[in-house]
Amino acid sequence: MTTRNQAALDFLLSRRSRPAKTLTTPVPTRDELGDILTAAARTPDHGKLEPWRFIVLEKPALSRLAKMIPDRAAALDIPDDKLVKAVAQYANADLAIVVVECPVISDKVPEIEQTYSAGAVCLSLLNAALASGWGANWLSGWASHDTTFCRDGLGLAAHERVAGLIHIGTETNAPPERPRPDLTAKTTWVIT
């Protein structure tokens, strides 16, 4: 057993995402994002395929994407309440990092394991931002799963998809603690 890192364990036991709608400026600088992205890239990755990449969206890009959403909502017959929420996710944000899943053809590593790696990057990115003192939230939403929006707005290739958008900024207020899973109901111990 290695030495216990109590500070890291305490952080993980108390970590809490901050709702994206409560985040504001300032946001991390490019230099500050360097450490956060470096930490996120240190994720489980069977075969060292790196089946993911980052797109950093600053305010002008987020505003441009927000303006694309109404046309896509109309084309997809998205209800008004979901349209409003999707526009706000982009229009009200100051910084978001898109984690793009980009699977690599491999005889050794199934695509599902590459999907898991992209999800692990999202969580590592979220935790790195929180550990750095920023507020952060992992979101997706219907627009991030629309291939036309992703192609035209984010420049994704046909084989790529959004694993998540990590919004990062300064939190305006701390959210209340939320109920956590009942571990006795979620855990099975196999002893024989």
Score class of each variant (00 low, 15 high):
residue 70 P to Y: 07
residue 25 T to W: 05
residue 63 S to R: 05
residue 156 L to H: 03
residue 190 V to R: 08
residue 56 V to T: 09
residue 138 W to N: 02
residue 63 S to T: 15
residue 67 K to E: 13
residue 192 T to L: 02
residue 78 I to A: 02
residue 181 P to I: 15
residue 9 L to P: 06
residue 108 K to W: 04
residue 109 V to F: 09
residue 36 I to M: 03
residue 139 L to N: 05
residue 172 T to C: 06
residue 42 R to K: 10
residue 155 G to I: 13
residue 12 L to K: 03
residue 79 P to D: 15
residue 27 V to K: 00
residue 55 I to Y: 01
residue 192 T to W: 10
residue 116 Y to M: 11
residue 140 S to F: 01
residue 189 W to Q: 08
residue 59 K to D: 13
residue 113 E to D: 14
residue 33 L to Q: 07
residue 80 D to P: 12
residue 83 L to N: 14
residue 68 M to W: 03
residue 43 T to W: 00
residue 68 M to L: 15
residue 79 P to S: 09
residue 61 A to N: 11
residue 188 T to G: 03
residue 191 I to K: 12
residue 133 G to H: 14
residue 161 R to M: 04
residue 185 A to V: 05
residue 130 L to K: 04
residue 30 R to F: 04
residue 176 P to E: 14
residue 29 T to V: 05
residue 112 I to V: 14
residue 37 L to Y: 01
residue 119 G to T: 13
residue 91 A to P: 10
residue 40 A to D: 11
residue 20 A to Q: 13
residue 168 I to Y: 02
residue 77 D to A: 15
residue 67 K to M: 06
residue 172 T to Q: 12
residue 120 A to K: 08
residue 177 E to F: 14
residue 152 D to I: 10
residue 98 V to R: 00
residue 47 G to F: 03
residue 122 C to F: 02
residue 41 A to M: 15
residue 21 K to M: 10
residue 9 L to H: 06
residue 170 T to C: 06
residue 45 D to A: 00
residue 128 A to S: 13
residue 99 V to N: 01
residue 7 A to N: 08
residue 119 G to A: 07
residue 97 I to R: 00
residue 68 M to C: 09
residue 14 S to L: 12
residue 140 S to H: 01
residue 141 G to D: 06
residue 123 L to W: 07
residue 105 I to K: 14
residue 62 L to I: 12
residue 23 L to S: 00
residue 102 C to D: 11
residue 45 D to P: 06
residue 47 G to H: 08
residue 87 V to L: 00
residue 164 G to W: 00
residue 124 S to F: 00
residue 50 E to N: 07
residue 154 L to V: 11
residue 135 G to L: 08
residue 150 C to S: 09
residue 155 G to A: 11
residue 74 A to C: 12
residue 66 A to W: 02
residue 165 L to V: 12
residue 33 L to K: 03
residue 152 D to R: 00
residue 21 K to I: 15
residue 181 P to R: 13
residue 153 G to Q: 03
residue 172 T to A: 12
residue 123 L to A: 07
residue 27 V to M: 03
residue 87 V to H: 00
residue 130 L to C: 09
residue 75 A to L: 13
residue 190 V to K: 08
residue 36 I to Y: 01
residue 43 T to H: 01
residue 44 P to Y: 07
residue 163 A to H: 08
residue 131 A to D: 13
residue 35 D to S: 10
residue 113 E to I: 04
residue 54 F to C: 09
residue 106 S to H: 10
residue 15 R to Y: 12
residue 162 V to M: 04
residue 19 P to T: 13
residue 157 A to P: 06
residue 162 V to P: 05
residue 98 V to E: 02
residue 63 S to C: 06
residue 160 E to S: 02
residue 4 R to A: 11
residue 84 V to F: 01
residue 149 F to A: 06
residue 39 A to N: 03
residue 188 T to V: 13
residue 17 S to F: 07
residue 144 S to D: 12
residue 36 I to E: 04
residue 176 P to F: 04
residue 151 R to I: 14
residue 142 W to C: 03
residue 137 N to Q: 11
residue 71 D to C: 06
residue 65 L to I: 05
residue 141 G to F: 08
